[in-house]
Amino acid sequence: MADAIKAENRKGFLVDTSRCIGCRSCQVACKQWNKMAADKTVEQGSYENPRDLTPALYNRIRFLEVGEEPGGVNWLFLNERCMHCGEAGCMKVCPSPGALYRTKEGVVAYNKEKCISCKYCVSACPFNVPRYDSDDKVSKCHLCLDRLSGGMPPACAKACPTGTLKFGKRSDLIADAQATGKQLYGVNDLGGLGVVYALEGPPERYGLPATPHIPLSIFLWKDVIKPLGILGFWGSIGAMLLHYVTIGPKKIDEAPEKEERHE
């Protein structure tokens, strides 16, 4: 996959969950900047709302209550969004060139006009992120590309009051976080995630896969079946030609005598 990112250009997030207060400025700022309508939600006994990403919700906070003992409870907040994977499952399966593309900053961006609504990216994402809007076009966090091109950080990072969402040069953010001894998630997974987390516990506690990977069947499809299939196609044509010139066709003998002789 032609998906090379220059590390020195790559921008990304460092999401330091130890600083997150679950205020959800990120959620609202994103909606505001990207001019997205509100989702209709229902109170179901949790602060977490909407309960999942939607075509009009590019990032959201997961509210995770952990600890069962009275007095032993904790409340974790995790910003969930497109991870802008270095090896992106969505880009791997996308059949429409330019629909999902990599910017020089390493952003997995998209062009709705080129999206052909196949929804393969929905299935191929290791984090179940892409959504489809009412026009049946892909919809997800694009790191506020329009802001980036103007030299501004994404709206969510700009709105974050506590420094949970740090945006900048990915390698610097990682180096800084590692220098303070933070446990990082996503530094090397999937070619390095564009959204690296500093977590306060194992990833599973936050509902993140311990070792994120492109789904096995997607890998088999794209990396095994596809090349072998192409080989098989040409191989079978080749084999037929070879058969024709070596063994040859089964010609029907026109002479009836010969036919009769067989009897």
């Binding site: 399966v93 393969y120 929905v122 299935s123 191929a124 179940n128 789904p215 096995l216 069947s217 997607i218 088999l220 499809w221 079946i225 596809k226 072998l228 299939g229 098989g232 196609f233 191989g235 079978s236």
Partner: peptide
């Protein structure tokens, strides 16, 4: 479910290749 679709994508591709051959 995502796993069904993922599996389907693989199998669809596999059967396609086989059929063409």
């Amino acid at each position: 479910p995502r796993w069904i679709v993922q599996l389907s994508l693989m199998i669809h591709g596999l059967m396609f290749v086989g059929t063409v051959m």
